[in-house]
Design a protein around this nucleic acid. Structure first.
Lengths: 184, 184
DNA sequence: GGTGAATGCGGCAATTTGTCGCATTTTCAG
DNA sequence: CTGAAAATGCGACAAATTGCCGCATTCACC
């Protein structure tokens, strides 16, 4: 096993997710692994907790409001640069992944991810570039999803503008966004 | 003229891609935009070029044969830390995107991406008093078309295998290939 | 306040995809 | 050479998606 180089004993971990149920389940799983877990459902409470007592680790869900979740990363790091943050999201996209890492996140995981995967994400060492390249092309639907996310981000979340730019109907874009991210 | 904050005049750019055709076309497009473009089809030649005369910008394709082109990023940055690298790949994945950024890439783009998008990727928060980039994203249909062509090529024109890989129905792929005009 | 843009739907008709089936070709090992 | 497996092209029809209307809110800005 190898493990995890994280000594869980008494390590503090802040879990930020607006989904109460998901939050509770994951918190339980992490607690069982020896972490002192605190939770927050909003950016503001997360920040307050961090300021009061900076945790060693943060699991940050981006589903809060897209962009606002990302902005929490530099804010947390301002409070305490040593905080190790992994981003976890049900709407993973390359665009937000790139953003998150640039903002200082340690890693970025698409949901669903179990507690072990999350801990493994914290455990990444200084880049091991020997990481295998995923030699499988994206599915059409996945590619479309990624592209939409990127353009939407470029347009600051403006759906109408994005639809125009993508030369597709706003209604269609709305419907696509309403659906779950496609598997690929 | 308009607004790319990248002053193309006499900026040196190294394009690393093993696909000679793609490389030539993109090099031409970039040259037309005022860059002094050099190209490399392998990691070793890329490194040699960089060592001889470090470029300001690098466009790095990850589809290089053999070991992942990911490792080239730190190697290039060792030669000259000021090099601005964007990664471009037809096999985009969140995992490699995260790795690429952590290794020091400035941005990460899934293929297909046109010259304007690539330049826009260089322009991100680059400390320059930048202006909004005038890059228009590909339409959904165009993106799909490009991607299909790519994967089809990788599969030596095998429609069945391509459809499987793209997670779409063979019949649908046939029909898509049957019609030509894809506006972009 | 007023105005224009954006948003979030519902509801259809038009178009596209999914899914079968089947008759050839191609590919390839024995 | 020969048979089996895979690939291809295509028709047909149901299922799903998209284009395109409209309309009631909400938002941003002057």
């Amino acid at each position: 096993m190898n493990g995890n180089d994280i000594t869980a004993e008494s390590s503090s971990l802040l879990l930020v997710d607006d989904d109460a149920t998901f939050c509770r389940v994951l918190a339980q799983a992490l607690t069982r692994r020896g972490f002192a877990v605190s939770t927050a459902h909003t950016s503001t409470t997360a920040l307050q907790i961090a300021q009061a007592d900076p945790p060693e680790y943060v699991v940050l869900d981006l589903n809060l409001a897209g962009d606002s979740g990302l902005m929490l990363i530099p804010e947390l790091l301002t409070v305490e640069p040593a905080i190790r943050i992994v981003v976890l999201t049900g709407y993973a996209s390359i665009a937000t992944a790139v953003e998150a890492i640039k903002l200082g996140a340690l890693n970025y995981l698409p949901k669903p991810a179990d507690a072990d995967q999350i801990l493994a994400a914290f455990a990444v060492n200084g880049g091991d570039p020997a990481m295998p390249i995923n030699a499988r092309p994206l599915s059409i639907n996945r590619l479309e999803w990624e592209h939409i996310q990127r353009v939407l981000h470029d347009n600051d979340g403006n759906i109408s503008a994005t639809a125009r730019q993508l030369n597709m109907h706003r209604r269609t874009l709305q419907r696509k966004l309403g659906k779950r991210p496609v598997k690929g």
